[in-house]
Design a protein around this nucleic acid. Structure first.
Length: 584
RNA sequence: GCCUUGGUAGCUCAGUUGGAUAGAGCGUCCCCCUCCUAAGGGGAAGGUCACAGGUUCGAUUCCUGUCCAGGGCACCA
């Protein structure tokens, strides 16, 4: 409808130019917007006000001239001039009602569009280091990413979701070493656990697995392990050097094969846990991409070479640097350290090169807001490798703060004291968690109140929306109990003339526009708000009018409307990964 | 210091490429089930859209500056 009106007004504009009322060079943007109040009709156009200046005429006069030249259309009931020069459009009743058969026919596909034109999009999100369980901070990225993926699919994009597994590098070595030390403690060795190692209880669990499978085979005397190792911070030494020295000790004492056994046990245990966690959170990936596969297949070397060949790499103090400052980054970045090991950044360059080579039209990364300083260098790398930097979009997700009522929950990853995503799911349920995470714009800080998410009351928007869905199901149930059946008959939809019904019809017809706008802006929260409105209007309707009445025609019309509402609620909730229960 | 995201009702937040009287939920106050689930509905009160300039017929929206808050500025990931 919006499209249709756009076409009509563009034609009228051209006619005004032909008639010499508006100068030919005027290029106003024809903007059709939804009226914010029913008394202003259904749509409004501000074209006349834009033309006032170039045409040197009063907006309201121009509006009249514009309307005279508007091509006739069956979809339009009438047009009005209002306020400073708005043209208000009232849509014909028959067009209004058409949305019901549309929803009922298209079912789950209602609201889908082709705006994405099948563009191939790689959506990377969460990508947390497999060094511990996912916590509530990751949950937001997961919920946002999954919802965005579904949303973009609905808008006609070909979305491929990927999790980048950082299974290489120092953090992983620390993980292996941490597991080993806990294992030694299980063997009966006494030692002081390093402050820079992973403190969480899950390390004990993994160590126990290693011990069950291998007995004392990897045991070495604690005093031997800690001999000649730089002191920890608590003993006046350096935390990081202490950890690094212990990693070397672990590798030499155990040998590569045994260290790998310990390390792999840790990695696989945690990764399996993460997979289970996300899948239980209704977050699915097409692919899990291993960082180690990059080094293993020489892709990192290839990426560095590509940058080198393009002339953006130089050597300084034994390290290889990428001249990212040529592309707007604030300083150059190291690719290969002076000891020959590639940096995390080098892997990332390789990963992005690989993404482009896999033929994706558009890359979207969802990162925590703390990584925002990283964006310029990755974009610089994209440009330096000869790809368009527009091809990469980085979306930032701000932190979530957990509250239990008024009380703020303190968290710290370092000490291993954090609320895991699993605990959150177990406490508030997947539906509430998924919804609360995407309820806010992603770049907004999020206050997540556990009490509210758990509460089964109208304070809780999730239940509110689900309840509207369940109510329709209940109506249908009652209908059957009374020995009646719902017969969808388009010819009686005209009976839906109450204010409540009109409001619902308008709301339903806006769903496709909302999906399109939300996908374009990467804003799944728009779905949450829309659903709240729709549920609200349905609840009002339900209270004001009885659906199961004696009049067959009106009853069936109301049932058709209710079923359409239920369908759209279901579609929207599905995009957010929230269930639509038949009964509550 | 530089970069970045915010500042809208008591609280948490929306606000459609600049438009008509700035909205919602919670909280507060009042009201509605002999009626399809009251996990619901109706109503009231509540605002200097942080502040100051600028652009515009028109600014919560765009530009500049100031103040306040979160985050970031590694040969860590």
């Amino acid at each position: 409808m919006k499209q249709h009106l756009h076409t009509l007004f563009t034609q009228a504009l051209e006619q005004l130019k032909t008639d010499g009322i508006v100068p030919v060079e005027a290029q106003p943007s024809v903007h059709i917007e939804r009226a914010r109040d029913a008394k202003f009709g259904d749509f409004a156009c501000n074209l006349a006000m834009q033309l006032a200046k170039p045409a040197k005429q009063k907006p309201r006069d121009l509006a009249a001239l514009l309307i005279e030249r508007l091509p006739a259309s069956d979809s339009i009931e009438k047009v009005d001039i209002a306020g400073p020069g708005f043209i208000n459009i009232f849509v014909a009743a028959s067009t209004q009602y058409a949305v019901i058969p549309q929803v009922l026919a298209q079912k789950d596909a209602f609201g889908h569009s082709h705006t994405g034109q099948g563009q191939k999009v790689l959506l990377e999100f969460v990508s947390a280091n497999p060094t511990g369980p996912l916590h509530v901070g990751h949950g937001r990225g997961a919920a946002y990413g999954a919802a965005l993926g579904q949303l973009m699919r609905a808008a006609g994009f070909d979305v491929f979701c990927e999790y980048y597994v950082n299974d290489a590098g120092r953090q992983m070595s620390i993980l292996g070493m941490s597991v080993w030390l806990r294992y030694l403690e299980l063997c009966g060795e006494e030692l002081t656990f390093p402050s820079g190692a992973y403190q969480g209880d899950y390390i004990w669990d993994i160590a126990a697995d290693v011990h069950r499978a291998n007995g004392d085979a990897f045991r070495h005397a604690a005093n031997l392990v800690f001999a000649d190792v730089v002191a920890d911070e608590a003993d006046g030494g350096d935390k990081d050097k202490h950890v690094d020295a212990l990693i070397v000790k672990a590798q030499t004492l155990l040998g590569e094969a045994d260290f790998n056994t310990v390390f792999e046990t840790g990695l696989n245990t945690i990764l399996d846990d993460i997979r289970r966690d996300l899948s239980g959170f209704a977050v699915e990936y097409e692919h899990w991409f291993s960082e180690r596969s990059l080094t293993g297949t020489g892709l990192v070397d290839k990426a560095v070479k590509t940058l080198q060949n393009n002339g953006y790499v130089y050597e300084d103090k034994g390290a290889l640097w990428f001249r990212s400052s040529d592309f707007g980054d604030e300083k150059d970045r190291v690719l290969v350290r002076d000891d020959g090991r590639p940096t995390y950044f080098a892997s990332d360059v390789a990963y992005h090169l690989n993404k482009v080579e896999r033929g994706f039209d558009h890359l979207i990364n969802i990162w925590g807001a703390d990584h925002h300083g990283y964006i310029p260098r990755v974009q610089a790398a994209m440009e330096a490798m000869g790809t368009n930097k527009e091809q990469l979009t980085v979306l930032l997700v701000q932190f979530a703060t957990l509250y239990r009522g008024k009380e703020k929950l303190q968290m710290s990853t370092r000490s291993g004291k954090f609320v895991t995503l699993r605990e959150l799911r177990e406490e508030v349920g997947t539906d509430a968690a998924r919804f609360f995470y995407v309820m806010r714009k992603s770049e907004q800080h999020l206050d997540f109140d556990l009490e509210l998410a758990k509460s089964q009351s109208n304070d809780n928007p999730v239940y509110y929306i689900q309840y509207a869905h369940a109510r329709v199901a209940r109506v249908l149930e009652r209908l059957e109990e009374q020995g009646k059946t719902w017969v969808h008959d388009e010819t009686h939809l005209g009976l839906l003339d109450t204010e409540h019904e009109q409001a619902l019809l308008t709301r339903l017809s806006r769903y496709p526009e909302m999906i399109e706008a939300a996908a374009k802006a990467y804003e799944p929260h728009q779905i949450a708000y829309y659903l709240r409105e729709l549920a609200n209007e349905f609840h009002s309707y339900y209270n004001a009018h009885k659906i199961i009445i004696d009049d067959d025609s009106l009853r069936n019309a109301r049932l058709s409307l209710s079923m359409a509402v239920q369908q759209v609620l279901r579609n929207g909730l599905a995009l957010l990964g929230v269930s639509a229960p038949e009964k509550m």
